[in-house]
Design a protein around this nucleic acid. Structure first.
Lengths: 153, 153
DNA sequence: GGATAATGCTTGCGAAAGACAAGTGAATAA
DNA sequence: TTATTCACTTGTCTTTCGCAAGCATTATCC
C-alpha cells in the first residue's frame, strides 16, 4: 500500500469520520460513485482533478477495507474490477450534499447547478432514493448523471 | 507558511469545499470552534488529536485567508490572538453535523452522545441557533460545551 | 525594574505521503 | 500470435507532516 495515513485515535465523531474520508481524494472518489455512478478504475482516472494512479489504487483498497465499497470482477471483462457502493458508502450522501450546499453559497452557479442545489435542499430524500435506485439497477454512468441532473455543466 | 496545499482547480462543488477544508486538520480546528467555542491557539493545541504547532499556525492563517475566521488581539492579554468564526465559518455547521451523524451510525455511543445525535437529527436549526447565540455572546469554552451538551463524554 | 514565565508562534530536520513517469502482467482484440 | 487495453505497481522526486527546539512579545513575580 502506498500510504497508511495516521489516524487520530480520537473519541470524537468528527475525527472518526475524518479518519476514513478526511483526505484530499477519498471523498472525490465517493463523489464519482455517488453522483456519477462510476464503478471502474479507469472511470475514476477520467475525473478532472486527475488523481495519481497509485493514490487511486490505495484509496480504493482503503474504501474496501472500511466497508464503503465492495470489489468484484466484471463478468463481461475479467480484466476489470467493479467497485460497488455499500450501504455504508451510500450513507455518506448527506455529507456530500452538505458540502455541495456550502460551496454553492460562495460560488457563482449556472442555471443547471442552481437547480440541482435547490433540489438537494428541497427534497434531499427523493434525490437519495433516486441514487439508491440507480445503484440497485446498475445503470451506466453517463445515463445516470444525465437523468438525475447531477452533471456540473 | 508551512505548506500551500495544491488545489484541485476543479469546477466541482465538492472539490471546491475540499480545497478549503479537505485535509486532516482544518475541520478539527473548526469543530473546536463550533462545538466547543475555542478561540485561542493554546486551546486548539489542547485537543486530544494533538495537532503540530506549525500545522496549527498554518491552518489558522489559511482559515483567515479563506474568510472562515477573523483574527484579533485579546484586549485583556495582548500576547493572545482571538480567532472568531465568521458567518462563512459558522455555515459549515451542517457539514460537521452530518459527519457526526454518519460516524454515529457506525460507532458505539454512550448515552450523552446518543442524546446529542438525536438532537442534531431532530432539531438541527435549534442547535445551530444556540451556537450562533453563543458566538455572539462570547461565552467561554467550558461553559458553552457543558450548557449545549456538546461534550463527547 | 530585572528575572521569570506564559503565549504564540517560527525554524530545522527526518519521515511520510503525494505527483509523475515508466513498467508489468493478465485478459482481450485483431 | 501479435498487439492493445486495463488495472495496477514501482521508482524517483517533491511536498507536506510530525516532532523538538528556539525565539519574540507581553505579562507576572519578587
Amino acid at each position: 500500500m502506498t500510504g497508511s495515513i495516521k489516524k487520530h485515535a480520537s473519541q470524537c465523531l468528527v475525527a472518526h469520520g475524518l479518519d476514513i474520508f478526511g483526505d484530499r481524494w477519498t471523498l472525490l472518489v465517493l463523489r464519482d460513485m455517488i453522483l456519477y455512478g462510476k464503478r471502474r478504475y479507469g472511470e475514476f482516472l477520467e475525473a478532472e482533478e486527475a488523481i495519481a494512479t497509485n493514490v487511486l489504487a490505495d484509496r480504493l483498497k482503503r474504501l474496501a477495507a472500511e466497508g464503503l465499497v465492495t470489489v468484484s470482477k466484471d463478468p463481461d471483462n475479467r480484466r476489470s474490477n467493479i467497485y460497488t457502493l455499500t450501504d455504508k458508502g451510500l450513507s455518506l450522501m448527506p455529507v456530500i450534499f452538505e458540502i455541495m450546499k456550502w460551496s454553492a453559497q460562495y460560488c457563482d452557479l449556472n442555471e443547471r447547478r442552481r437547480k440541482l442545489i435547490a433540489r438537494l435542499t428541497a427534497e434531499p430524500d427523493t434525490v437519495m432514493a433516486e441514487i439508491r435506485a440507480r445503484e440497485a439497477a446498475n445503470e451506466n454512468p453517463a445515463e445516470t448523471a444525465a437523468r438525475l441532473h447531477l452533471l456540473p455543466r
